[in-house]
């Protein structure tokens, strides 16, 4: 395998980009997956349930 500076730079410039797009897609799908809505809403509210506040 011929690992020159040019091949590495090229890989960085091409595969790096594909990787970035793929990764963003996965994150977007996870975030907006309808079935996840409920768990996110619960997580958002649940930390307020237990009273860990200063009691002013």
């Amino acid at each position: 395998m011929d690992l020159t500076h040019e091949t590495l730079v090229e890989a960085a410039k091409t595969w790096g980009l594909f990787y970035l797009i793929g990764f963003s897609l996965c994150v977007l799908v996870y975030t907006f997956w309808p079935a996840n809505r409920e768990r996110f809403d619960r997580a958002k509210r649940n930390i307020l349930d237990e009273d860990d506040q200063p009691w002013t």
């Binding site: 020159t4 500076h5 960085a12 790096g16 990787y19």
Partner: peptide, 21 residues
């Protein structure tokens, strides 16, 4: 780890062969 390491690998890995340039 997957998300965070790639940036570093892509930027730094080519510098291992920097001697050529």
């Amino acid at each position: 780890i997957v998300a965070a390491s790639v940036g570093g690998i892509v930027e730094i890995a080519p510098l291992f062969t920097i001697d050529e340039t």
